[in-house]
Simulated assay, not measured.
Amino acid sequence: MEEQRKATEGTTEEVSVQKQGNSYVLTGREGKVGEITYQMVDVGTWVIDHTYIDPRYRGHNLARQLLNMVVDEAREKGRKIIPSCSFALEQFEQNPEYADVWDNKTSTKYADPYSSDSVSQSGP
């Protein structure tokens, strides 16, 4: 389990990150505060389909840290990623460091800009 620290209302709260199946989950004192999930499309490709950070924890780059964990795992396993949730797609479009894992030939087919659970750039 990886530990990360986050400031909340003038105090420091421990937030832990744990891999659970095809997701990474952030947990604080009061339980789950965020997650990113992905699904296997085929043997070499994953779709990131959901990113969420509790509104009380946004603004501390936690969603980006979760995204980086999925990207790092994809690199280690030689996988490509289709960023389906709006947050992941926006990050892939704005940051060239994801180009090596981005399966952008098909990503627009899966993009869901209307997902209510997705996190926008201004959110996390």
Results as ranks from 00 to 15, higher is better:
residue 118 S to N: 10
residue 40 M to V: 13
residue 121 Q to P: 12
residue 33 V to K: 09
residue 5 R to L: 12
residue 12 T to A: 09
residue 15 V to M: 08
residue 121 Q to I: 13
residue 35 E to D: 11
residue 52 Y to A: 03
residue 85 C to V: 02
residue 112 D to L: 11
residue 42 D to V: 03
residue 43 V to H: 14
residue 102 W to L: 07
residue 48 I to C: 01
residue 100 D to F: 06
residue 53 I to M: 02
residue 79 R to P: 03
residue 41 V to H: 07
residue 31 G to D: 14
residue 88 A to N: 06
residue 95 N to D: 09
residue 86 S to L: 04
residue 20 Q to N: 13
residue 19 K to L: 04
residue 83 P to K: 05
residue 3 E to W: 09
residue 120 S to G: 12
residue 24 Y to M: 09
residue 8 T to S: 15
residue 42 D to A: 00
residue 87 F to W: 02
residue 41 V to C: 05
residue 34 G to H: 09
residue 103 D to I: 06
residue 119 V to D: 05
residue 82 I to D: 02
residue 78 G to F: 04
residue 61 N to G: 09
residue 87 F to R: 02
residue 18 Q to M: 03
residue 15 V to S: 03
residue 38 Y to V: 07
residue 74 A to I: 06
residue 36 I to E: 05
residue 22 N to I: 08
residue 12 T to S: 10
residue 120 S to F: 11
residue 71 V to T: 08
residue 43 V to L: 11
residue 34 G to W: 07
residue 38 Y to C: 05
residue 15 V to Q: 02
residue 23 S to Q: 15
residue 71 V to L: 04
residue 88 A to G: 06
residue 45 T to Y: 01
residue 75 R to D: 00
residue 49 D to H: 08
residue 68 N to V: 03
residue 120 S to I: 14
residue 59 G to K: 01
residue 105 K to C: 13
residue 123 G to Q: 13
residue 115 S to I: 07
residue 46 W to V: 03
residue 53 I to Q: 00
residue 111 A to W: 14
residue 2 E to T: 12
residue 32 K to Q: 14
residue 118 S to G: 15
residue 82 I to A: 00
residue 9 E to C: 09
residue 119 V to R: 08
residue 2 E to R: 13
residue 46 W to Q: 03
residue 15 V to P: 00
residue 70 V to E: 02
